[in-house]
Design a binder for these strands. Structure first.
Lengths: 217, 217
DNA sequence: TACGGCCTCACATCATTATGCGACAGCGCC
DNA sequence: GGCGCTGTCGCATAATGATGTGAGGCCGTA
């Protein structure tokens, strides 16, 4: 399942840190350091030229700062993952970075091992960030939301059956349901067989689709 | 010099997991397990009675689910930190939890040590969450504003992939899709593999659920 | 022209689902 | 007490899905 190496590009104006990051990443199997630049001046041409999968972007840089660099990258190459690096976790920066589409947000004091983990995470579709920053992000969220709750349409499913249908909708496999609910695999089968009968379907996907569309969740 | 222990309350309907969480937390210095309940029915009275600092809340519970429980806690006791526990990281739940004021969001498969870390983090003002969930949270944010660069990307699925995803949602099997579109079974497999990669899912049900919830149909 | 993305197809292997046939216990009901 | 329904569990088999590896053609763009 080994695909090509992850191509990483660094923007970091501090020469020392840039060098140590370069050494760290350059010496890691599975990663390919395609560049380590001191500024974002040519970011628009850097990206198509170096074709990174992941960019590590220092926020505090002279000239074009990291937020601006991030915006420019996302404007032209939204698929490139950008992880911001910063010393401070001040609210305003986090807000700007998040709104500009950052895919991760780490402190410079992050230990090397964690930094490498983070690159893997972002490649896997995750968004690495420290808990403190995550908290900031959550606080940026608008609290007010329209809740919608309805406990109608029993659809003649028993309570247990509805419960299990709900798990199917969540993407659970038979095994996971059995584990989660502490019952045997055969019991799960049994329930699902009944659910299929009652909903007049013949596969998990049909059941999930029907459940979501008829609001049985 | 001893500050008070962190008072932790668990809501988890799976008896096995509830028990193992109880043992884990109960045996940890600095933590005091003030309760481990199987449902949220009495959440409004549980909280003032047990006075937890941190609540671990399973999302999938029969009766009052974790999101609703979270809302009720935050409505009356906003200072209590609530960390959500779930098996899957689907967008809709994350969105609801975040909007309802969750202070953290962890997968049930989180190793015990990490779970304990998370409780410490949330007490320290952090918001523990897995990178994959953090990514979801970031995605909930308003996208790049100024430039019109964003033509609503349907999760970067190709036209053909969207088409096939649509058929999955309709409950078609691989065979049916192949027949319907006049392509080979292996080609269908191939498309679906790609779709899974792009959506970060590993089964038809997850794909269908994600498609319906994110309006990719 | 070379490269990358998309669509097509094949083959192989392992894991999971779908389905049928039973079975037993608890519960509410007449 | 019998009856029906629900929830639990077992076994067996066939069908389907998940995943890896590899490959050729078409097309647009660097």
């Amino acid at each position: 399942m080994e695909t090509a190496d992850t191509r990483v590009l660094i923007y970091e104006d501090n020469p020392d840190l840039r060098l140590s990051l370069s050494h760290l990443l350059g010496g890691t199997p599975g990663l390919e350091l395609v560049g380590a630049l001191g500024n974002c001046q040519q970011v628009e041409t850097d990206i198509p030229r170096l074709k990174p999968d992941v960019v590590l972007m220092d926020i505090d840089m002279p000239g074009i700062n990291g937020i601006e660099g991030l915006k420019r990258i996302k404007a032209n190459s939204p698929k490139v993952s950008v992880v911001m690096l910063t010393v401070f976790e001040d609210n305003d920066r986090v807000f700007q970075a998040v709104c500009a589409g950052a895919d991760g947000y780490l402190l410079k004091k992050t230990p090397p091992a964690k930094l490498l983990d983070a690159i893997g995470e972002v490649r896997a579709g995750g968004a690495p960030m420290t808990p403190a920053i995550a908290r900031q992000v959550l606080r940026l969220f608008p609290k007010p939301v329209a809740p919608r709750q309805q406990e109608d349409s029993p659809a003649n499913l028993s309570a247990r059956e509805q419960e299990i249908l709900g798990l199917l909708v969540e993407g659970y496999s038979y095994k996971m349901i059995a584990h989660d609910r502490g019952i045997s695999l055969d019991t799960v089968r049994s329930h699902i067989k009944k659910i299929y009968e009652k909903l007049h379907v013949r596969s998990m996907t049909e059941a999930v689709s029907k459940a979501l569309r008829q609001g049985l969740t």
